[in-house]
């Protein structure tokens, strides 16, 4: 069985199978990459870098989108 690492996504602890990139994670989460933005350890991950950005144990991610607001 592949090794899993623990990361935090939007404040929730999650176990992710290695190796995994940001692109893999968004696929697992069924998120439309065109409608979200990702921050990893307080740094923006540009959309063009999703596939090349590997996740590491202890990473903290924020995944956001637009919602109604004034």
């Amino acid at each position: 069985m592949a090794e899993s690492i623990e990361i935090t996504i939007n404040g929730e602890a999650r176990f992710i199978r290695q190796p995994a990139s940001v692109a893999d994670l968004l696929t697992v989460l069924s998120l439309d990459t065109r409608k979200v933005a990702v921050e990893r350890n307080l740094e923006i991950v540009p959309r063009s870098a999703y596939a090349a950005t590997a996740l590491a144990a202890g990473d903290t991610l924020e995944i956001v989108h637009f919602i109604g607001g004034g």
């Binding site: 069924s30 637009f66 919602i67 607001g69």
Partner: peptide
Amino acid sequence: VTVAVRRVNLSDPGAPMLQ
């Protein structure tokens, strides 16, 4: 139109979106 930026709901990724 103004919009807010918030965390996606990981438990319901298919929920309808503002867009």
